[in-house]
């Protein structure tokens, strides 16, 4: 079980959203509901795991000077694969997440893990790291989505338990910043206690 920590690290110690503060754009933009946050997290995880695997395989062959363009090309390829798959199998999710699917290319988490982890670890470890960080990202996005959906529309995963509209501001842009800010405060408190 010595490799288990590659997965668990992504949740708390290296949490991409609350500790590393990477990939803020999709975090803020797509978490209008719990389901959207979950879908965005899983889409990012797909690209993260596959690009980590391929980059850890090609890294020894790539000259140092051109490594960033190579990594970006690998990542962009998997993003294109993801776009085509989503268009075919989950057109509704592709429609709601919109621009933020192609923008996974410039998500700093993916390039960050390629540069910071995958190019100096084995394929297996890189795959586990991709899964761990991907799950951490998915979990954070889902939590933000849950809070915003409860406050903003009085429902959870589409199941409505409060009558009326909720506080509209939480589904709109300002709510994203506020919820993320306050959740970060809670996370800091939790880390300080440990």
């Amino acid at each position: 079980m010595s490799k288990w920590h590659f997965i668990t690290d992504g949740f708390v110690k290296n949490n991409p959203t609350f500790v590393l503060v990477l990939g803020m754009c999709p975090t803020l933009a797509t978490t209008t509901s719990a389901l959207n946050g979950l879908e965005m997290g899983l889409a990012t995880m797909f690209v993260l795991v596959l690009s980590n695997i391929v980059i850890s395989l090609v890294a020894p062959m790539v000259p140092d000077k051109v490594r960033i363009p190579v990594y970006i090309t690998v990542i962009a390829t998997f993003v294109t694969v993801l776009q085509l798959l989503m268009q075919a199998f989950t057109p509704a999710a592709y429609e709601t997440l919109g621009l933020f699917i192609p923008l996974i290319v410039v998500n700093c988490i993916v390039l960050g893990r390629a540069e910071g982890f995958a190019n100096k670890h084995s394929v297996g470890e890189s795959a586990l790291d991709g899964i761990g960080v991907g799950l951490g990202f998915t979990a954070s996005l889902t939590v933000i989505g849950i809070v915003r959906e409860i406050l903003g529309s009085g429902s959870l995963f589409g199941w409505k338990f409060l009558p009326g509209d909720g506080i509209l501001a939480f589904v709109m842009a300002p709510g994203a910043f506020l919820v993320l800010g306050y959740l970060m405060v809670l996370f800091n408190k939790y880390l300080a206690k440990k």
């Binding site: 842009a173 300002p174 709510g175 910043f177 800010g181 306050y182 970060m184 800091n188």
Partner: peptide, 22 residues
């Protein structure tokens, strides 16, 4: 407050700014 230092308070400020832009 200590837990708000740095990014959290910045994010909350942006939230209020975004509200103004609404």
């Amino acid at each position: 407050p200590k837990a708000f230092k740095g990014l959290p308070i910045a994010l909350i400020t942006v939230g209020i700014m975004a509200m103004a832009f609404l």
